[in-house]
Design a protein around this nucleic acid. Sequence first.
DNA 1: ATGAAAGCGCTAACAT
DNA 2: ATGTTAGCGCTTTCAT
Lengths: 328, 328
Amino acid sequence: MRVTMEDVAREAGVSRALVSLALRDAYGVSDSTRDRILDVAERLNYQRNALASGLARRTTNTLGVFLLDLHNELFADIYDGIRDVATAAGTELVLSVGSTGGTLDKPGLDALVRAQVEVVVAAGLLLSDKELAPYRELTHLVSVARRVPGADNVVSNNELGAKLAVSHLLEIGHRRILHLAAPSSDGYRGRRRAFSRTMKAAGLQPQILVSDYSRADAARVLGPVLDSTDLPTAVFAHNDQTALGVLDALHSRDIPVPEQMSVIGYDNTSASRPPGIALTTVDLHGEELGRRAAEIALARMDSPDAPPMEETFKPTLVIRGTTAPPAA
Amino acid sequence: MRVTMEDVAREAGVSRALVSLALRDAYGVSDSTRDRILDVAERLNYQRNALASGLARRTTNTLGVFLLDLHNELFADIYDGIRDVATAAGTELVLSVGSTGGTLDKPGLDALVRAQVEVVVAAGLLLSDKELAPYRELTHLVSVARRVPGADNVVSNNELGAKLAVSHLLEIGHRRILHLAAPSSDGYRGRRRAFSRTMKAAGLQPQILVSDYSRADAARVLGPVLDSTDLPTAVFAHNDQTALGVLDALHSRDIPVPEQMSVIGYDNTSASRPPGIALTTVDLHGEELGRRAAEIALARMDSPDAPPMEETFKPTLVIRGTTAPPAA
DNA sequence: ATGAAAGCGCTAACAT
DNA sequence: ATGTTAGCGCTTTCAT
């Protein structure tokens, strides 16, 4: 049987109440008894039952974290940022992981609600605004990387990022640019929209292809285009993962990068630095976003009724080896 | 205020007990009232309080999962496997994440214990056997990828994996082989040991360098060797991450792979497939390990007193583009 | 400084 | 089929 607070109390010859106080070093416990209690607790390997504790305190002082996909390092970056500030604040995290399809969003969020977290920081939500609405009553939501109406939001300016990427390509002379977009869903249309807008503003025809978030699918989707007669001279991929898929497809057809084809990714994860051919990419500063989201979440714990907070980060273009002027 | 079971009961005009039963569709609730209760629960967006529920049931039916590092995709693979079988069994997961330094192992495990998980599946534990000992009394431990005495273990045969890698290099003619090892810690010496043994068995001098688990450090550590006069002709890296670091260092010195230098990684993560230069690597089948670990964890929930279970998977060599006979 | 007692939201006998 | 009641392990008034 697990060792309970009662066990510690008995062993130390005091009441449970006193043990409870001593363990959270509250005032009003004499030094000597506190020391004795802590000694006993340590000796018995006592660990407080978080269920009972949270139930009794009517608050868990805990932050829920939802991450869309563990295979995409962007979420590891975001998590690092969140953990950093949560740890400093002494707030525990409760995690839950989704999937690129989005089918695990709901179960994941539900689990966090059931765990009674004070606030949930969700990175990469795929649920529609409508499906997300009920959660506004169940918990406080801080959405990262995706704008959710009515919630707290920590996002990156995707319009700007896409514009940065496309402008770079335009500047070095590209005209036929293909955008490999992610499936269209609420809150994730900024890159695609800015791509189209920027192309049109330059008097060019935007060409868009859609793949899911996986490297393999990106390569697959791009295939037919590469096998056709008139190729684009540059591809702007939705993220680094899919950019890798683009590079795969290109490599398997012996199309040299950047000589015959320029490629730009998005996220600046370490996947964007395959040795030799480092990806030009847009850095959305995941760790920073995570950090800020956690700060907002902590602030939200203190003032549940403050108006929604919103913060938009500016992405930056990281020019590396996969972009060059088009072949003459 | 959050909606409680009491609210649902009142609204449906029944007792709490009945709601509790209906929600877990136990026998003994008439169809009509069950439907009514479920309707109300749904309408009120009721989510059961997992703290109260777990406390009352004296069991959470929950699996704790510890992952060393979110930046290493191996752990995403392992997680996928675990989630797969846990979901099928209707068992919830509680996650906790460590860090490559190992300093977060203890806090991470403690959090799982406090959360009252039935069993913890830990992948990539860095704590020493000795530091791990106390946890044997606090929870059931299924260790993945690392052998922990007395616990359930799901491991890969690292000796075999390393032998596979080195033998391959030997076979194609290499004699001067360098092993870039991970810091020596309990449970992770198999690859290094087998490297030395295999080299000696071939009458060769094992050469070993140590780096931490990061790509950057691997590149840094390898630097001096590459700048010296007599280079090895092949490098066997501790994992794919560090193999990437090796490739980085090589590339920055214009040493062609595999012509001038062969490289082997370990794990077969997607990082091992940078476009163009796919890494020869050892696949330890992370998802499989995760799956099996979860199965064992579930079995352990049913029979807490069964003798320790142990399963050793056979890694396989994946020969790709970074290995070739040494230059003449 | 310390202890007694009530109660957090639920589940599990047990009673009806 | 449904309701009553006694906890689960802790925290928190409130006494002493």
